[in-house]
């Protein structure tokens, strides 16, 4: 879909120089060595997660997450009343905005949301909606803003987890926490929590091979209720592989859940000690 180009200052098209300088390296990229990953992880290993709440003092709730080099900030603001355009709404709403910082990716992002970011905003919203008790705040809207500071792969999964922690931190009534993880599929390889280079590889199909599984699956779930809240798949994968991959992802999401819980407990304990 098109974006409004009128509000963008500066030259209309510029390209990152990497596409020229990397020309010789590009061929190795395709022959990526799958026996070991660049950060010495095994295929089924996720990167270490750092999570902290309450980093934006102005916001009702906020969270910062780091997964390897991927860094995401999320803030949640007080509920505000919906405009009465569509009449009284029995259910509350959450509004999500996902944005890559202009400097977060290899190619510079413009300040306006592009199609990809708009899509990620909608995915984020759908991933969170099943977890939030929307009936508890009828006719109100909670705003969730996510900013990716550094995109080193799996930023959507990181964003979902940051948003879920920030919502809990803000005291929004929820049924449970939402965790998410990403898997990259390339032939027989299942790469958990892929980095941006691995994502790029999984997105391309090798030449001369037609019957080849490749793609990226992001799965958000509510591990405390064994529910899947959002799936986002892109690529070309057969059903059995998807089934296997979602199994791995649900297990991973269950494993990640204590990290979020501990982080929230730590926040509460800190608050408790301060009050004393």
């Amino acid at each position: 879909m098109p974006v409004d180009q009128r509000r963008i200052n500066g030259p209309e098209v510029s390209v990152p120089y990497h596409i020229y300088s990397d020309f010789n390296k590009k061929s190795d990229k395709v022959k990526h060595d799958f026996s070991k990953r660049s950060d010495k992880r095994i295929d089924s290993e996720i990167r270490k997660i750092f999570l902290k709440t309450g980093i934006v003092s102005q916001a009702k709730g906020s969270a910062y997450i780091e997964m390897g080099n991927t860094k995401v900030v999320c803030s949640v603001f007080d509920p505000r009343e919906l405009s009465n355009k569509n009449g009284y709404c029995m259910q509350g709403e959450i509004y999500c905005e996902f944005k890559f910082a202009p400097f977060s990716c290899q190619k510079r992002k413009i300040h306006q949301q592009n199609a990809e970011e708009k899509q990620y905003s909608l995915i984020l919203q759908r991933a969170l909606e099943p977890a939030v008790c929307l009936h508890e705040f009828p006719n109100f809207q909670v705003d969730v803003y996510v900013m990716v500071l550094d995109n080193a792969g799996s930023s959507l999964a990181a964003a979902i987890m940051a948003a879920s922690t920030a919502l809990a931190n803000a005291g929004v009534p929820m049924f449970g926490l939402v965790t998410a993880s990403t898997i990259g599929i390339y032939g027989n390889h299942y790469l958990m929590d892929p980095t941006d280079t691995e994502e790029a590889i999984c997105n391309t199909q090798p030449d001369n091979e037609d019957d080849f599984n490749h793609g990226i699956i992001t799965l958000a779930s509510l591990p405390q209720h064994n529910q899947i809240s959002e799936v986002f798949l892109i690529g070309s994968i057969d059903t059995n592989t998807i089934k296997q991959a979602t199994e791995i992802l649900t297990a991973a999401n269950k494993d990640i859940c204590p990290v979020l819980q501990q982080c929230l407990v730590k926040t509460i304990m800190k608050l408790h000690n301060e009050k004393k």
Binding site: I123, R126, E129, P130, A131, L134, D210, D211, N213, G215, I217, S221, L222, H225, N226, Q227, I228, S229, E230, V231, F232, L233, I234, G235, S236, I237, D238, T239, I242, T246, E247, T250
Partner: peptide, 20 residues
């Protein structure tokens, strides 16, 4: 050829793994 090229869940509800 039987491959799936995209999947996305819509709507505000969640689903169980088996159902999915």
């Amino acid at each position: 050829n039987g491959k799936i090229s995209s999947v996305v869940k819509l709507g505000c509800g969640s689903i169980q793994f088996n159902t999915f």
